[in-house]
Simulated assay, not measured.
Amino acid sequence: MKRFFKYGLAAVLVLALMVSIFGCSGGQSGDNKDAKTSAGQNKPTIVIGSKTFTEALLLGTMTYQYLQHLGYPVENKVGLGELAVIRPALESGQISGYWEYTGTVLINVMKHEPSFDEEECYRLVKEWDEKNGLIWLDYAPLNDTYGIMVRKDIAEKYNLKKTSDLIEQIKKGEPIRFVSTQEYNERPDGLAHFEKVYDFKYPKKYLINAALNVGYEALKSKQAEAGLAFTTDARVKAYGLVMLEDDKKAFPVYNAAPVFRKEIIDAYPQLPEQMKKLSSLLDDETIMELNKQVDVDKKSVDEVSREFLKKSGLIS
């Protein structure tokens, strides 16, 4: 929440002096100059929010640090809450922007059928939210959806790179145990849809039901050869597992993208292109590594975010 306190004429003079000093500092890049100039014209503060899981915290923190470096007036509300909290906060103007997933809004907000095409899904949510005064900026390559993971030894044994490669081995009768959840196996857009897209039937004797997050442990302990995973989960990398390419697009798309209130983009028209420099760097492998540094290596979100931005040349 913005905090403005009145301390009399002396405080106003001090504040004016500080704005003068920092607003006129030299040595800024072209982007920084634009942001500094805008900030000096009483433009709105950009309040950055995020959801509370690691990946969302990283995306929000990177955005806050990046925009702060560019000289924007920013406020940190990273970790505000999940969809039921953060979406109304954006709609009401309590926050100015946060990273959302295309499939999440399509399915949970618009009540639309899942989409399996990145461009189509993005277009649908972008057009929907324009009517709500919300602007979706370019989405990142990262797609935090379901995927098929296999143990590294299995990937090497069968030369598996794509999901189709795995299906070929299953059709040959190879004893590849697959761990997923009962809920996924029973959902019409779950296992049945997966089998339809890849034109096969998984032998029931090789299907293992487990709790949502137990599959990673099952592969690690060699109780299964393959399993259902989230494509950006840190444990895939931490456990030395291999994520196969979903080459026939069997899983709904959940590309992450920054979403801002229209008045913010109107006030700072250079923001979309600047944010694109960040979003274009974030693919599945990159965000998985960043998630790992936080969840497995126990580094702070702030440290991991700042290191990534520096290595990418977005901040100094």
Rank of each mutant, 00 (worst) to 15 (best):
A10W: 11
A10M: 11
L13I: 13
V14S: 06
V19W: 10
I21Q: 10
G27Y: 11
S29H: 08
D31Q: 13
N32P: 00
A35Y: 04
T37F: 10
S38L: 14
K43E: 00
P44E: 00
P44L: 05
L57S: 01
T61A: 01
Y64H: 07
Y66R: 05
L67I: 02
L67T: 04
Q68Y: 11
H69V: 01
L70R: 08
G71V: 05
Y72V: 03
P73T: 04
E75M: 13
G79K: 05
L80S: 04
L83D: 05
V85G: 02
I86L: 10
A89T: 09
S92F: 02
G97N: 06
Y98Q: 06
Y98A: 09
Y98G: 03
E100R: 00
G103S: 06
T104L: 15
L106V: 05
L106R: 05
V109K: 00
E113M: 14
E113C: 01
E113D: 15
P114L: 11
S115C: 07
D117V: 08
E120G: 03
D129A: 08
N132T: 04
I135Y: 13
W136N: 09
L137P: 01
D138I: 11
D144S: 15
T145K: 12
I154Q: 01
I154R: 00
K157E: 14
K157Q: 15
N159E: 15
L160N: 01
K161I: 10
S164M: 04
D165F: 08
E168T: 15
F178H: 02
E183C: 01
Y184W: 14
R187D: 15
D189G: 06
H193T: 11
K196P: 03
V197K: 04
V197D: 03
D199Y: 09
D199W: 10
F200A: 05
K204S: 15
K205M: 04
Y206I: 03
I208F: 05
N209R: 09
L212D: 00
N213G: 14
V214Y: 12
G215D: 02
G215P: 11
S221R: 07
E225W: 06
E225K: 04
E225D: 13
G227K: 09
T232K: 07
D233C: 11
A234V: 12
V236Y: 00
L244G: 11
D246E: 08
K248T: 00
P252F: 05
N255L: 07
I265S: 08
L271F: 04
S280C: 07
T286S: 03
I287W: 05
V294Q: 11
D295Q: 11
V296D: 04
D297Q: 15
K298S: 06
K298G: 00
S305A: 13
F308V: 03
L309A: 07
K311I: 07
S312W: 09
